Simulated scan of single mutants.
Amino acid sequence: MSETITTLEKLASSVLQTLKEEKNIEQKLQSPLRNQILKGEIKKITDVEDRANRLLEEGVIDIYAEQIDSNYIREIEYLRIKANYYRSKVLQSIDVDQEVVYVYATHIFLKDFLEKELQQFTGDILDIIALEQLEKEEPIVVQPNENLVSLYEDHGLGSFSKPREQGLPIFESSSIFSLCNLLKPYFSEQDFYYLESLFETAVQVPRKLFFLSEGNKLADLFWQLYENKLVFNCNKMQLERWIAINFQYSERGKVKGFTPKYLNKIISTDHQKCKNPIVDISNDFSTNINS
């Protein structure tokens, strides 16, 4: 990273608290309307970003011009930061480039802070229901016996040498190979190393695996697996909890963690079909994957 970018980041980081105070962020976080307020604050920032991208595509502004159009200073500075303009351009002085620092602090640091706060538990009724239900659940250890062995063999699993807790998902063994192949492009090589083990054992891996795309795609895939009876030994809420513990996803180039509310809306409630699903699973999973 260049010295210019390092300096810019340090300056922007130093004014972040000032920005929070100016916008009364701490008070807003305590408000009963916290969720709506955070969405509103994020929208103010993304509206500028959307306008900047539109102006750039329409050829209205030029981020590499020597003279900046005073009507679009904030939009141009946002696009310059996004385009790594300041990796090769030296800031003239702190005073002259105060607008650059402000834009960087707003669109990088403040936006990130607000988005992370929005993901935290906010008292939403869906989060309350999910968390209360999870607290009530007691792990039930399933002891192998003739009936259970028969059930497992019906799914191609064979008998287990170790008991499996009720609530930990069991994936149809014949589908695991196809499932891993399907998901291989969505994980780094290092994370993919753990993926098959996770599907075979459901035991938590050393770290959350990073899904390199939108979270709704992965959640939709697990919903389809459940609906097509390719995962069992758990209810939908337990499956949601398992996903949240073991996976994270990418949103606008940033790492996001799954929340109970997010997963509940996709897996446990009626929802619109994913517009760009990873796969459309039929009852014959392997045939569908290979077709």
Rank of each mutant, 00 (worst) to 15 (best):
V48D: 06
E49I: 15
E49T: 08
D50Y: 12
R51D: 09
R51Y: 03
A52M: 07
A52E: 03
N53V: 01
R54K: 14
L55Q: 08
L55Y: 09
L56W: 06
E57A: 13
E57R: 13
E57F: 02
E57P: 00
E58N: 09
E58I: 00
G59R: 06
G59S: 04
D62N: 15
I63G: 03
I63H: 02
I63A: 02
A65Q: 11
A65D: 12
Q67V: 14
I68D: 14
I68L: 12
D69A: 08
S70E: 08
S70C: 01
S70L: 07
N71K: 11
N71G: 04
Y72F: 15
Y72G: 00
R74C: 02
I76V: 14
I76E: 04
I76C: 07
I76Q: 07
E77N: 12
Y78V: 07
Y78I: 10
L79Q: 05
I81A: 07
I81F: 13
K82E: 14
K82I: 05
K82Q: 15
A83P: 07
N84H: 14
Y85H: 15
Y85E: 08
Y86W: 15
Y86S: 10
R87Q: 14
S88M: 08
K89A: 13
K89M: 11
V90I: 13
L91Q: 08
L91I: 14
Q92K: 12
I94P: 00
I94E: 09
I94R: 10
D95P: 01
D95G: 01
D95L: 11
D95V: 13
D95H: 10
V96L: 09
V96H: 07
D97I: 04
D97K: 07
D97F: 06
E99T: 12
E99H: 11
V100F: 07
V100D: 03
V101K: 02
V101E: 05
V101I: 15
V101A: 02
Y104H: 09
Y104E: 00
Y104P: 00
T106C: 02
T106P: 01
T106R: 12
T106Y: 04
H107F: 05
H107C: 10
H107L: 00
I108S: 08
I108P: 00
I108M: 03
L110K: 11
L110S: 08
L114S: 04
L114K: 08
L114W: 09
E115P: 03
E115C: 06
K116S: 07
K116A: 06
E117V: 01
E117S: 11
E117Q: 15
Q119H: 12
Q120D: 11
G123I: 03
D124P: 00
D124Q: 10
I125D: 11
L126S: 08
L126E: 10
I129M: 04
A130Q: 04
A130R: 02
L131V: 12
E132N: 10
L134P: 01
L134N: 14
